[in-house]
Nucleic acid binder design. Structure first.
Lengths: 133, 133
DNA sequence: CCTAAAAGGACTTTGATAGTCTCTTTATAG
DNA sequence: CTATAAAGAGACTATCAAAGTCCTTTTAGG
């Protein structure tokens, strides 16, 4: 039921980025230092961000990371799922048909509801809400 | 963000028990077979249930397990937390003061909300709702 | 006192988490 | 066109929790 450290780090990093001037390219080394995360680990996280289109990356001198969209268009849900995979309170509910007990299991619908509620809550928060200016 | 197998097994077992005649003492071996969980593993789970006062156990011949209270007085939240520990979406929010970033961390209140919502949802479900009769 | 059950503790296996390290690719500046 | 500065990618390692097993002890009945 818990976010992993990776997820936590991911949020720290992206929130930091959202708090920077939006046209400023930030160095991974700076981000890592600012949010207190091992740089090599954060590198992996930002690679995932880059692949899922949350940040844009630039290589070489003067390179770094920048938000791919304005902060009000990036939700917390998107950030979390980019690194943690789909949010699901129980594996029986990751996808329809995953669980052979789901036809008769009375708990199944509960997990569906939990999943929906949590996703909804996170989808309503954007990086704009989280960036502290 | 996911329930462990232990949590899942725990629910299966207790829901089965809630579906039995309430004055009937069930054998662990029967429960385990019925819900398709390794008996030795389920034993550990029911020990925790017993300690948290969800079931009553009887040793020796004719012994076994029985709900400690009527099913409508046992919530899903209680069951889950008995074996999984407190529900918390992020370790920063298990207890006040746990996280040294919480004074300035803008995400902290979000996790509090998620936690409350999930707990509320699970607290509203009782074993009576889940037992299929 | 023998047998049927749960309780308790020690142990093992497996897999995910949380990283690290090294090499490659891409881009810029001189 | 070469040196340098960044991110990308892959392989590797260490640690820890999850998932489960096994064995011994306690409790209760017949």
């Amino acid at each position: 039921m818990e976010l992993t450290r990776k997820g936590d780090y991911a949020i720290r990093g992206i929130v930091y980025l959202a708090g920077q001037p939006l046209d400023k390219i930030s160095l991974l080394s700076n981000i890592a230092a600012a949010v207190d995360v091992p740089q090599t680990f954060l590198a992996k996280i930002f690679q995932q961000f880059s692949k899922s289109g949350i940040v844009k990356s630039y290589r070489g001198t003067g390179g770094g990371f920048i938000l791919a969209r304005p902060p009000e268009q990036i939700t917390l849900l998107e950030v979390v799922e980019a690194v943690e995979g789909p949010i699901t309170p129980n594996r029986c509910v990751v996808a329809p048909g995953e669980c052979e007990r789901d036809s008769f299991c009375t708990v199944h619908p509960i997990w569906e509801r939990v999943k929906q509620q949590v996703r909804q809550l996170l989808a309503d928060i954007t990086l704009k809400d989280l960036a502290n200016n």
